[in-house]
Simulated scan of single mutants.
Amino acid sequence: MERLTPLSAAFLEAEAEDVDGTASLAIGSCAIFAGPAPTYDEFVGAIAGRLSLIPRYRQKLRRAPLDLAAPAWVDDTDSDVRWHIRNTALPAPGGRDEIARLMSRVMSRRMDRSRPLWEYWFCEGLAGGRWALLSKIHHSMVDGVSGTDLYHLVLDPTATPPSVVPAGGSKNR
């Protein structure tokens, strides 16, 4: 069991102290791809087969009794990758405004702390036959560079996943 650093615990606390519920300390990104999208099931299968290479993405937070210590990362044995990878499509015309509205909606919602703190949105229906991935990861889980670990695994062109986490691997936060 590994406890959060004071800084990472502060990210969680900042959200908890926000009485109107508008603060979210998730980090988001959007990657747009040309060409036909894989099927949702193919995409989920590719992630599921490689997720073991990034242990933090399979862990959730456990609070200490009476909050006497920082929360700790523990393995989530009940995790369902399909809960973390959402499937959606943009309304026509599938342009900049539509993807911006989706990103705004996704990022404005707080993450469920009873689960690993990441989401991917597999998004079809972009103009020009394109598709997108929206990434949402809580800042207590990653820093800037390690937030791209899942992208490294998704974009790896080899049929066999790499045996180690890419350079800049998930920080033990």
Rank of each mutant, 00 (worst) to 15 (best):
W83K: 07
A46Y: 06
E124L: 15
T88A: 13
A167R: 14
G147I: 01
L25G: 04
S140M: 09
L153R: 00
A14N: 06
P157N: 06
A64S: 15
A31K: 02
A31N: 09
T88V: 06
M141V: 13
R86E: 05
S114N: 11
V165Y: 10
G95A: 08
R3W: 12
H84C: 10
Y151L: 11
G35L: 04
I99T: 00
F122C: 00
G49A: 04
A69N: 07
L155G: 13
E119I: 04
D78I: 13
Y120L: 11
A127V: 14
L102P: 00
G95N: 06
P6A: 08
R63K: 14
S114G: 05
S140G: 12
D20C: 10
D97Q: 11
L51E: 03
D112L: 02
G45S: 10
G45V: 10
A132R: 01
L66V: 12
H152K: 04
W83I: 11
A159G: 14
A167E: 13
D18S: 05
R109W: 15
A31E: 06
P65C: 09
G129V: 04
E2V: 14
E42Q: 13
A14Q: 10
S170F: 14
E119Y: 12
P55A: 14
P162G: 14
D80P: 03
